[in-house]
C-alpha cells in the first residue's frame, strides 16, 4: 500500500481564544493518513481543545482546519466524517448497547436489519458479542469503553478521535487496552488521534506525537525523537526522565553553554571526571540501578548496570558519557 500523500488532519495557524485565554495559539499541525497520533500535554495545555476543534465542538477563532484536504472550519460536527470516543464515554443511558452502537447508522436512515448486522459486527470487533441487549449502566468501565469504541467506529470515519480514553480504567486494564487499541488501529488502518496527559501511554502507543504547552505545540515528532532529542526544557521535563542540564553545567561537562538533556542510560559513574557530585539517592530497578548525583543545585541521574559496584549514599563520583549522548536544546 502506498502512503496517501494527503494528510488526514491539518491545522493551518489555528487559534482558539476564550476571552483573554489563548487555549490554542496559532497551531500548525499535520497528521498523516493512517497514523496513530498522540496529543500529549499537561491539563490546560490545549490538547483537548485541539481535538474538539477537529470534531467541531469548538470553532477556531482564527485559521483553518482541514480533514483529508477539505476545509471543515465551517462544517458542523454532524457532517464531519470523524468520530469521537469521549473521555467518560457519554453512552446514551436510555438505549441498549446495540442501539448505542447502531446510533450513527440510525440517524443516517439505514434500515433496521442492516443496522443490527453492522452493530453485531462492531460488537464482535470489540469482543462484546452477546452484550447487545444490556444497558450501559449494567457494564463495567472497560466494557463501556469498548461500546464507545464500537459506536464511534460504525460510521467508518476518516479519523477516530480519542479523548483520554483510558483515563478512567485501572492500571492493568489500561495496559491491556493500550495493546488492543494499537492492534485495532493497525487492522483498520484508520487514523487515530489520541489525547492523553500520560507520557508513557503516548510514547508506547503513538507512531508520532505532539507535545502541547500553553496552547502551542512544543515539539512534534516520533516518540523516539521526542524522547531522545527534546527541543526544550519543557519537553525534556514532561516527556522523559532525562537529566536537564543548565548551560553552566553543560559547559563544565564539555558541551556548549546551553541547556542540554542527557538520558540516564547514557551516564556512567567514574571515580575521576570533569565534575564531581555527591550520591544522594539509589534506586534498584532490577536490570540495574538508578543513582542520583547531586552537583550543586542540579541532580543528575545515572544508570549503573547490574553487576557493577553501586556507590554508597554520600560518597562522591563523577558522571561520564559519550559526547554524542549530550543533546543540546533550543531553550
Amino acid at each position: 500500500m502506498t502512503p496517501d500523500p494527503t494528510p488526514a488532519v491539518e491545522f493551518r495557524a489555528v487559534s482558539r481564544h476564550f476571552g483573554a485565554v489563548r487555549a490554542v495559539d496559532s497551531v500548525d499541525l499535520t497528521i498523516a493518513e493512517g497514523a496513530f497520533f498522540a496529543m500529549l500535554g499537561p491539563s490546560g495545555s490545549g490538547k483537548t481543545t485541539c481535538l474538539r476543534l477537529i470534531s467541531g465542538f469548538e470553532k477556531p477563532s482564527a485559521g483553518h482546519i482541514l480533514i483529508h484536504g477539505q476545509d471543515v472550519s465551517d462544517v458542523p460536527p454532524n457532517r464531519r466524517n470523524v468520530n469521537t470516543v469521549f473521555q467518560d464515554y457519554a453512552l446514551f443511558p436510555h438505549m441498549t448497547v446495540r442501539e448505542n452502537v447502531a446510533y450513527g447508522l440510525m440517524v443516517k436512515g439505514v434500515d433496521r436489519r442492516r443496522r443490527r448486522d453492522k452493530a453485531e459486527e462492531l460488537l464482535a470487533l470489540v469482543k462484546l458479542q452477546g452484550y447487545g441487549d444490556r444497558r450501559p449502566g449494567q457494564l463495567s468501565g472497560g466494557q463501556r469503553q469498548r461500546v464507545a469504541l464500537a459506536r464511534a467506529l460504525i460510521n467508518e470515519p476518516r479519523a477516530l478521535l480519542l479523548d483520554e480514553p483510558l483515563g478512567a480504567l485501572d492500571l492493568k486494564l489500561r495496559e491491556a487496552m493500550q495493546d488492543e487499541l494499537k492492534a485495532l488501529q493497525k487492522r483498520l488502518g484508520i487514523t487515530f488521534v489520541f489525547v492523553t496527559h500520560d507520557q508513557h501511554e503516548a510514547l508506547s502507543m503513538a507512531d508520532s506525537l505532539a507535545v502541547f504547552n500553553e496552547g502551542k505545540i512544543a515539539q512534534i515528532g516520533t516518540p523516539e525523537d521526542v524522547y531522545t532529542r527534546p527541543k526544550s526544557r519543557f519537553v525534556a521535563d514532561f516527556v522523559g526522565s532525562s537529566n536537564v542540564l543548565p548551560p553552566k553545567l553543560t559547559r563544565a561537562l564539555g558541551g556548549p553553554a546551553a541547556w542540554a538533556s542527557l538520558r540516564p542510560e547514557s551516564v556512567r559513574l567514574a571515580a575521576v571526571g570533569p565534575v564531581r557530585g555527591t550520591v544522594s539517592a539509589v534506586r534498584y530497578l532490577g536490570a540495574g540501578s538508578r543513582v542520583v548525583l547531586r552537583i550543586g543545585e542540579v541532580e543528575v541521574a545515572a544508570y549503573v548496570p547490574a553487576g557493577d559496584p553501586i556507590p554508597d549514599i554520600g560518597s562522591e563520583a563523577s558522571p561520564v558519557f559519550a559526547p554524542a549522548a549530550l543533546h543540546v536544546m533550543e531553550g
Binding site: D4, E33, G56, K59, I67, H68, G69, Q70, V72, D74, V75, P76, P77, N78, R79, R80, N81, E156, P157, R158, L188, G189, I190
Partner: peptide, 25 residues
C-alpha cells in the same frame, strides 16, 4: 479500506441546514 470515504458528509435537507445555522451562531 476507507480512503474513499468523504471527509465531509452531504447536507441532507432543511434540518441539517438549520443545525448548521445554530452551530455557526
Amino acid at each position: 479500506m476507507l480512503s474513499d470515504a468523504p471527509a465531509v458528509l452531504p447536507e441532507r435537507g432543511p434540518a441539517d441546514r438549520l443545525t448548521a445555522v445554530f452551530w455557526r451562531h
